[in-house]
Simulated scan of single mutants.
Amino acid sequence: MSDKKKDKAELTKTQQVEGKLNAFLGNNRKIVLAFCIVVILVIAIVAIASSVNNSILNKQFDQIDQLSTTYSEIQAADKDAADYQQKVDDLVAQLTELASKNKKYPALKAQYLLGMQSFDEKDYQKAMDSFLSVYTNASDSYLGSLSLSNAATCAENMNNDALALEYYTKLIDQYGNNVAESPKALFGQARLQEKSGNVELAKATFQQLADQFPSSEFAKLARNKLVLL
């Protein structure tokens, strides 16, 4: 078949397809129009919802910034002041409300601050529960490793060395040397290993800390411990 005949055949097929499409659109004009309207409405609704969600999230970021500042101010305040407890109660109420909203950063930071406030009040179980909640929902962020480290500290304050060692070990296993809490976790791990009588393992962990974080304050403590063990 010559090129001209091929081109003519292709043109005929194209015309046939266009004719069928035009016929379909003509016979189903109302259906097609309704479908287009639905698609446009869906796109509009999604855009509006996205805009609303972004606006809400931005407000939550502003709120957690303000609450973080309030928390810092309360830490520096006179605990014997007449309005101190009222300020704490107001802060806790606002943090609790924000923490219940979703699993975004502002809500997670609110939950973390609730843990810090409970820790300040020496309610270590409540603090640990808050920290573990944050860790569960933000394990891939800095809040996750920080909360797991704080949970270990809470366990130690409750004299639960086994649980504290579990959390310190989990932090090292999960995050390695990649987070700021790693030296503290290694030092805590070594201390508790020594406390439980596993001196050789403790020495190895202290040495690991000294080798991997030589400029850390915890490494200096580890080197001192190695001299004594």
Rank of each mutant, 00 (worst) to 15 (best):
E97H: 12
A47F: 11
N150T: 10
A81S: 14
S68I: 09
N27A: 10
K225P: 05
L165M: 12
A127V: 12
V199T: 15
D123P: 03
V179D: 01
L209Y: 04
S100P: 08
M158W: 06
A93H: 04
E97D: 14
A155K: 04
L113F: 07
A34I: 11
E156T: 14
M1I: 14
F119C: 06
T12Q: 06
E18D: 10
C154L: 07
A110E: 00
K203H: 10
T153R: 02
D7C: 03
N160R: 12
L57R: 08
Y168I: 00
T205F: 00
Q193N: 03
P214I: 06
K79T: 15
T153K: 02
K101H: 07
G188F: 03
I45V: 15
Y112A: 08
N53T: 12
I43S: 10
Y167D: 10
S100D: 10
D90H: 03
A23P: 09
E121R: 09
K13S: 08
S2Q: 07
Y135C: 01
K184S: 13
A34H: 05
M116Q: 14
K8D: 04
V39Y: 01
D83N: 10
Q86C: 00
K104W: 01
E18V: 12
T96Y: 01
D80W: 00
F218C: 00
D80S: 15
A202H: 05
V42Y: 01
I56H: 07
K103W: 04
S118R: 12
Q111M: 03
K6S: 04
F218Q: 04
R223N: 09
E156V: 11
A23N: 09
I172Y: 01
K20F: 05
Q208V: 05
